[in-house]
Lab assay of single mutants.
Amino acid sequence: MKKYKITVYDEKTGEKHTIEIEMSEEELEELAKKLAEKHNVKVRIEKV
């Protein structure tokens, strides 16, 4: 498992949230996809 920083940005409201999380790359990609689809936000992932 690796550490990642996830930034979620909502273009409508301008809200931006960043968290650090430790998980596998596959789980992370699935999480990012679900966030983007369900909440209509942009998701950026960076390795820490």
Results as ranks from 00 to 15, higher is better:
Met1Arg: 14
Met1His: 11
Lys2Asp: 15
Lys2Glu: 15
Lys2Val: 14
Lys2Phe: 15
Lys3Val: 08
Tyr4Phe: 06
Tyr4Glu: 00
Tyr4Gln: 00
Lys5His: 05
Lys5Arg: 15
Lys5Pro: 00
Lys5Val: 08
Ile6Asn: 00
Ile6Thr: 00
Thr7Leu: 04
Thr7Val: 04
Val8Lys: 01
Val8Gln: 03
Val8Asn: 00
Tyr9Val: 05
Asp10His: 09
Asp10Trp: 13
Asp10Tyr: 14
Glu11Ile: 14
Lys12Cys: 13
Lys12Thr: 13
Lys12Trp: 12
Lys12Met: 12
Thr13Ser: 09
Thr13Gln: 03
Thr13Val: 02
Gly14His: 07
Gly14Phe: 06
Glu15Arg: 07
Glu15Asn: 06
Lys16Arg: 10
Lys16Pro: 03
Lys16Trp: 07
His17Pro: 01
His17Ala: 05
Thr18Asp: 03
Thr18Pro: 01
Thr18Arg: 03
Ile19Arg: 05
Ile19His: 06
Glu20Leu: 14
Glu20Cys: 09
Ile21Cys: 13
Ile21Met: 12
Met23Ser: 08
Ser24Thr: 14
Ser24Arg: 09
Ser24Leu: 13
Glu25Ala: 06
Glu25Asp: 13
Glu25Arg: 07
Glu25Ile: 09
Glu26Met: 08
Glu27Leu: 06
Glu27Pro: 01
Glu27Ala: 10
Glu27Cys: 05
Leu28Lys: 03
Leu28Cys: 09
Leu28His: 01
Leu28Pro: 00
Leu28Phe: 03
Leu28Trp: 01
Glu29Leu: 13
Glu29Gly: 08
Glu29Val: 12
Glu29Ile: 11
Glu30Lys: 13
Glu30Pro: 03
Glu30Trp: 09
Leu31Asn: 00
Leu31Glu: 01
Ala32Lys: 13
Ala32Pro: 01
Lys33Asp: 03
Lys34Glu: 08
Lys34Ala: 10
Leu35Lys: 00
Ala36Arg: 11
Ala36Phe: 12
Ala36Val: 07
Glu37His: 06
Lys38Thr: 09
Lys38Phe: 11
Lys38Ser: 08
Lys38Cys: 13
Lys38Leu: 14
His39Gly: 14
His39Pro: 14
Asn40Met: 04
Asn40Val: 02
Asn40Gly: 15
Asn40His: 09
Asn40Phe: 10
Asn40Arg: 03
Asn40Cys: 04
Val41His: 05
Lys42Phe: 04
Lys42Gly: 04
Val43Ile: 11
Val43Gln: 00
Val43Phe: 04
Val43His: 02
Arg44Ala: 10
Arg44Leu: 15
Arg44His: 15
Arg44Ile: 15
Ile45Tyr: 04
Ile45Ala: 01
Ile45Gly: 01
Ile45Gln: 01
Ile45Met: 01
Glu46Ile: 03
Glu46Met: 02
Glu46Asp: 08
Lys47Ala: 15
Lys47Asn: 12
Lys47Gln: 15
Lys47Arg: 07
Val48Glu: 05
Val48Gly: 03
Val48Tyr: 04
Val48Asn: 02
